[in-house]
């Protein structure tokens, strides 16, 4: 942890948030799939899965009504002018749509579903997530520890100026495409094409892991790509 002094700051800030206002909102239909949509301009965002049914939003911006929390069609929408840290607790099985143009960071922890996370200028950190994951940060890095990929849907991690670092369980099954223009590609998985070698081009490599499975794309431009085995 030494190399990330700002992380301590973030934790300290989270402590302050606990004193900030909290809002609880329920989904209208517990039987149907849940979606949480977060659209913020600034601040930092942490989304955590928990074993509850409702969505809990904690942010100082709630107090001044700068952030709106609404629910319609089983979708909880959180949007507005958030400047400091915001913590959102969601049921473990929830799909996410996250758009944070200038957020410093978005952290997602212990959530399973269709996760669609897009930042312009902030880093994305995913911890113990599963499902179909689409993560994009234009200018910062993406790091992810994924417990399971949705076997029926593709996943994709893309960044123009950041590193992409993903860790999967050793029994990963996927059709992977890795590509970066100005970085390096590292993996300790065995990439195979049916009965042959993986396809290698100037800037990328593609092949199968564990006999193949859903499509998994990792694409960078200036950063390196790490595909790690847990």
């Amino acid at each position: 942890m030494m190399y990330r002094p700002w992380l301590l700051l973030a934790i300290a800030a989270t402590g302050i948030v606990a004193a900030a206002q909290e809002r609880l909102i329920a989904f209208s239909d517990e039987a149907r799939p849940r979606i949480v949509r977060v659209e913020l301009l600034d601040g930092s965002l942490s989304i955590r899965g928990y074993e509850g049914k409702d969505v809990k939003v904690t942010s100082a911006a709630l107090e001044k009504d700068r952030v709106q929390v609404t629910e319609a069609n089983n979708t909880v929408s959180i949007s507005g002018m958030n400047r400091g840290p915001m913590v959102v607790q969601v049921p473990n099985q929830t799909s996410l749509v996250v758009r944070c143009v200038n957020c410093r960071e978005a952290v997602v922890e212990s959530v399973s579903g269709d996760l669609d996370i897009n930042l312009l200028n902030g880093a994305i950190r995913l911890m113990n997530v599963s499902g179909s994951i689409l993560a994009h940060s234009l200018n910062k890095s993406i790091s992810a520890v994924i417990t399971r990929l949705d076997p029926d849907k593709p996943s994709s991690f893309t960044s123009m100026n950041g590193t992409i670092d993903c860790t999967f369980p050793a029994d990963l099954k996927a059709d992977v495409k890795l590509r970066t223009e100005n970085g390096k590609i590292h993996t300790d998985f065995d990439l195979q094409l049916e009965g042959g070698l993986p396809v290698r081009t100037d800037r990328g490599i593609s092949g199968r892991i564990g006999g193949g499975g859903p499509e998994l794309q990792m694409r960078a431009f200036n950063g390196s790509i790490y595909l790690r085995k847990k």
Partner: peptide, 11 residues
């Protein structure tokens, strides 16, 4: 509506 589904469509 779901980006995952659309990505599947592209595949």
């Amino acid at each position: 509506q779901s980006a995952s589904e659309r990505l599947k469509g592209v595949t």
